[in-house]
Amino acid sequence: MTLDILYFAWLRERMGVPRERVETQAATVTELVAELIARGERHAAALSDLSAVRVAVDQQLTDLDASLTGAREVAFFPPMTGG
């Protein structure tokens, strides 16, 4: 499947790009993260400390073990600081 991957805040800075499109067979977010980290240093720098990373699948906040079945967009970002 084809997924749009979005990065925000310092994850975006470490990646050097705000988004990318990937072909993947990953069944869960955790599997996707492993695939992305294997792509190189920038991905590893952005995603190595998962305790500091939150994830949304199709714009819904979820967990790292979430399924990617039918997903089109996955976003990675630090804990939110609104308000």
Binding site: F8, A9, W10, A56, L61, F77, P78, P79, M80, T81, G82, G83
Partner: peptide, 27 residues
């Protein structure tokens, strides 16, 4: 609503000082 906005609304704050960007605000 305020408690939710602080830690669940998709916003990320970065501080700007006199010398330019200083860093992201930590949760």
């Amino acid at each position: 609503l305020m408690d939710w906005l602080k830690s669940r609304a998709p916003f990320w704050k970065r501080e700007i000082g006199e010398g330019g960007p200083r860093g992201w605000v930590e949760a």
